[in-house]
Computed example of a mutant assay.
Amino acid sequence: MAFPKQIRLVDVAPRDGLQNEPEAIDTDTKLELIDRLADAGLRHIEAASFVSPKWVPQMADHREVMTGLKRRPGITYSALTPNLKGLEAALECGVEEVAVFGAASEAFSHKNINCSIAESLERFAPVLERAKEANVRVRGYVSCVLGCPYEGEIAPAKVAEVAKALFEMGCFEVSLGDTIGTGTPLNAKRMLEAVAREVPMDKLAAHFHDTYGQALANLYAVLEEGIAVIDSSVAGLGGCPYAKGAAGNVASEDVVYLLDGLGIDSGVDLDKLAATGDWIIQAIGRPNRSKAGVATATKLSDTSG
């Protein structure tokens, strides 16, 4: 199959990338990160998570972030809203798109949100209903699509079942997450083939972590199948608190470098993106996990110096 001509990149760094940072990151830093990502050409940025600060202290300033945004036309600033309370708070802040989070693994669902997959889907029903009333789009996430820290391998049919349920409930797009980054290209293709039998390919996104260094290879594999939406995180920030040893999301810079090399348009300026990655890792004292980001930032500093 031919590669898509264009890709929509969703940068999840402000939410998924920062949510597990142990030291509080001030709101201004988060807002500047979002603005720099927009300036680099990102048109879809996951900005915040409307969850209880008791569970995710780093996202306690979700209201300040969503209301403090320098909104630019043509850019979607989305937020995670796992329940009705979170959605109502997000709506008060003028959110245009929200996301709900399910899992393809029963054990992970219990550990992560303290309920079964079926119960989690039931909980999402009123969220989707209310969002529809408010004319707000809902994105669905499915985690553990290529493996679970508790159950091991996950059957592609199970992933397809959960993705189909989210799509039929009204999610405009379903993002397939390799939460612990154990997937390999053949597994990724087989999983996607199973899901695409239940949900149209143009309603699917890939959200791959790089724990075993396979994220780019896996993305190449699903690009061949027709995936045209990719979730990534600048500098490879983020991880999963429920999956020990899980490295961060695939780095946005590495994805853009790959796409540029394939002649696929992402609309993102790699130099600006690499500068953003370099800035945020210095701001929060984290290593830069993006190979392309480090190489590009080094090259830029050499030429400017």
Rank of each mutant, 00 (worst) to 15 (best):
G41K: 03
S105N: 10
L69D: 03
R63W: 02
I34W: 12
V100E: 05
L80R: 06
G68H: 12
P73G: 09
D39N: 11
E46Q: 14
E64W: 06
E92K: 15
S49G: 14
L33A: 06
A90P: 08
G94F: 09
D35S: 15
S105D: 12
E46G: 08
R36V: 09
D61V: 00
R63S: 10
F101R: 01
A99G: 14
E96F: 01
D61P: 01
R36C: 10
V95L: 08
A104G: 04
G74L: 09
E97S: 13
A40K: 11
S105V: 11
L91K: 07
C93A: 14
E64K: 11
A48S: 15
E88I: 12
L42T: 00
T81K: 01
A38H: 06
T76I: 15
L91A: 08
A90W: 04
M59D: 02
A104H: 00
A89S: 14
E88T: 13
D61E: 14
G74H: 09
R71Y: 11
A90V: 12
D39H: 08
K70M: 07
M59C: 00
L91R: 03
Q58K: 05
A99S: 15
D39C: 04
R43M: 13
S78F: 02
G41S: 09
V51C: 02
A48C: 12
E97Q: 15
G86C: 10
N83A: 09
V95C: 04
E88F: 07
M59E: 00
M59S: 02
T81G: 05
